[in-house]
């Protein structure tokens, strides 16, 4: 398996119904830092340990959900090569000009077989994590709420999982790290372009283009419990957790933003290397694959999407 020239999911654009409550949620409760706003009313945020200018863009709209997720690639040459390869694969690609999102270079935008919009870009302005690059301290003071470190991955729902798998592995050179199967039918796929066990994941669902969750990294299990305390303290809509996933081994909690978009904060999955072999979960063990302690499926977790 080849290492990808895609580095990581670098931004996600989420639609919210009302900006002010969304900002209280993402800034004060999850602890993302507001870094900019633009003339379209979009608000830009980042986790404290992210180096680039922003990773979350919020846009007020009449329906919640995800506009797109953007992946950073290693350089401009790789961006051009991937654009060519995507076209050869049969994708229609579009160039979004630099600075359409502030601080972000040109983006190559395309729609994947499940109907989700994905972007690739090579350049984003550097901000740093505020600790400096010479003899830095380990963390900054004054962080808020859950103190999310970074936007980590998203899970999307859609119909053509096989088409997505082909595109992500053959064109973008992601690795399939884990999957849920029922015989030959793939029900869920977890994909990595890095040493993380997933950078994006998909679950089979009859509608195209649905959003399940955006996930943010925390440092420890104790911080996941503290996030659970904050969820009750501030009466945030809880989905479920804290618990452990069989798939990816993540220690996790799920909840909703004030517009009904699902969020996850988690810690403690494992390291993926490109010479590893994928893990398979069978449909008859789905309970423990998803919720390792309960060993039961949760209908809300499986079917509530925006």
């Amino acid at each position: 398996m080849a290492q990808s020239s895609v580095i990581r999911p670098g931004h996600i654009s989420l639609r919210v119904l009302d900006m002010e409550p969304a900002l209280v949620h993402y800034r004060e409760r999850m602890g993302l830092q507001e870094v900019d706003r633009d003339a379209h009313g979009r608000v830009y945020l980042k986790g404290w340990d992210e180096q680039d200018w922003f990773s979350v863009v919020l846009r007020e709209a009449d329906r919640p959900g995800m506009d797109y997720v953007g992946f950073k690639v290693i350089n401009e040459a790789a961006l051009n090569t991937l654009e060519r390869d995507l076209r050869a694969f049969g994708c229609t690609t579009e160039r979004i000009p630099a600075d359409e999102l502030k601080h972000c270079g040109e983006r190559v935008r395309f729609t994947i077989p499940t109907g989700h919009v994905i972007e690739l870009y090579a350049r984003k302005d550097y901000m740093g994590n505020g600790l400096g690059r010479v003899n830095p301290d380990p963390w900054p003071e004054g962080l808020k709420g859950m103190q999310a470190q970074r936007f980590d991955h998203c899970l999307l729902y859609g119909d053509d999982l096989d088409g997505n798998l082909k595109l992500f592995t053959e064109v973008l050179k992601f690795d399939l790290t884990e999957q849920v199967v029922d015989g030959d039918l793939k029900l869920a796929t977890f994909l990595s372009c890095s040493n993380k066990v997933h950078d994006i994941a998909f679950i089979r669902h009859p509608e195209k283009g649905k959003f399940h969750h955006a996930s943010f990294l925390l440092g420890t299990w104790e911080e996941v419990l503290r996030a659970a305390d904050l969820i009750s303290m501030h009466d945030i809509s809880l989905d479920l957790g804290p618990t452990r996933h069989g798939i990816t081994r993540g220690r996790t909690i799920y909840f909703f933003d004030p517009s009904g978009n699902r969020n996850e904060v988690f810690c403690g999955d494992y390291t993926w290397y490109p010479d590893h072999q994928p893990i398979t979960w069978t449909a008859d063990q789905l309970g423990r694959a998803i919720f390792y302690h309960d060993r039961k499926l949760n209908q809300n977790f499986l079917s509530v999407v925006t």
């Binding site: 449909a283 209908q299 809300n300 079917s303």
Partner: peptide, 13 residues
């Protein structure tokens, strides 16, 4: 109402 989940449907097979 809750939509049917493809995963949950498969588990019942």
């Amino acid at each position: 109402g809750l939509r049917k989940s493809v995963l949950a449907e498969r588990l019942r097979h």
